[in-house]
Design a protein around this nucleic acid. Structure first.
Lengths: 209, 209
DNA sequence: CAATGTGAAGCCCTTCACAGCG
DNA sequence: CGCTGTGAAGGGCTTCACATTG
């Protein structure tokens, strides 16, 4: 293993491997080969080994990988061996649904609060998550060491909210608004674009691979 | 232009270009250069031209592209120049939120119904979208020419629902369940994996590019 | 002997640079 | 003259194939 650039595709796959390993662990499996992992995640054995090789040598030749050890290594690599504080801006349908998403909690993401402008919903709760008024966001981020922000507001407001988050010290943003967003280099940004995903489907259906 | 394999990244960008062009069109812009598009979508001019070149010659040298013509070409390419019928399975928080998502309607996706097993919510509506009982799904798909299915059920149920959808004749699936799903070659599948997206963020934060 | 770890080959996508054209 | 369209170069990710090792 030598230090080099790691493909984003590798990180995405590691995350999927991790979830699959957790399942195997629950089933009581002790050891697993790259071939078995590949089957479980619909990939190739060589790819699995290559992905892991970026970070070290985790296996035993002739045997495979220890399931729970490997999963521990991967969660460490992904940075989810401890908790992260998250807020969601936009407490409409999507924001509220995201705040209740089980998958976040299971993977160490702590949704602390929702923020919104609508006086109808400010002060209420989505499940156990409180909804605060938007102007309180900056101070909340600072006081609670919030590292990750999720954008679930309508497109026209997204950039302004992002700017405010960045100003407050947020390190990473997951954007669900259908707009191209700008952030400084030191802030991580990912876009989850629902309509774009649908359009990739329709293209492939229409174009018939 | 010659026929060849088109990168998925190109399709994703075309979808983003299209949304941006729609905005420019609304602002009354008639003509646009690859450079301006690149700025608006945070890309490069050469990339914009290359992406379009897969499908034809849409510009005028020395001038640029006609905004509304180009957008019409792109929506045609993406297969969204007409409507698509969609159902969502799982009327929990996420499924209900998706059924109300404005971005689907705006881009020609018609959400006809939700399906769920919970007798508490079957028979109700999410906004204007009715919630039907899960066993009615297959006949509904056939009777209403549903082409696209969205999976918003808990992970353990996802594969069974997908199999049923495929059996009923669905052509494309957008999967939100955190599980690796199998479909036959002729069915299009895309995964929107929320926790995976968060973990790419935490990796990048931890690893500090 | 079975399965890992890894250089090398292959392939695909992006970037470059400029010819072509309105 | 300016911007498109594109062959060629470059870079990066995946696949291959095998040497390595417990």
């Amino acid at each position: 293993m030598k230090s080099q650039k790691i493909p984003e595709a590798t990180i995405i796959r590691l995350s999927v491997y991790s979830r699959y390993l957790k399942q195997l662990e629950k089933n009581g499996l002790i050891t697993v080969s790259s071939g078995t992992i590949a089957e479980g995640v619909d990939g190739s054995p060589a790819q699995v080994r290559k992905d892991l090789a970026y970070f070290g040598e985790f296996g035993t030749r002739g045997v495979g990988y220890n399931v729970s050890d490997l999963n521990r290594y991967i969660t460490k690599i992904l940075g989810i061996d401890n908790k992260w504080n998250v807020i969601i801006v936009g407490a409409g349908n999507l924001g509220s649904a995201l705040s209740q998403y089980k998958g976040f909690d299971e993977r160490g993401f702590n949704v602390l609060a929702l923020f919104d402008n609508d006086p109808e919903i400010v002060g209420k709760k989505a499940g156990k998550i409180p909804v605060f008024s938007a102007p309180r966001m900056t101070s909340f981020i600072k006081e609670n060491n919030v590292e990750i922000g999720i954008i679930a507001v309508p497109a026209p407001f997204a950039q302004d909210i992002v700017d405010e988050m960045v100003g407050a010290g947020i390190k990473a943003i997951l954007n669900f608004a259908p707009r191209v967003i700008s952030v400084p280099d030191y802030v991580e940004l990912r876009n989850v674009d629902l309509a774009v995903n649908m359009e990739v489907l329709t293209f492939n259906m229409t174009f018939q691979k």
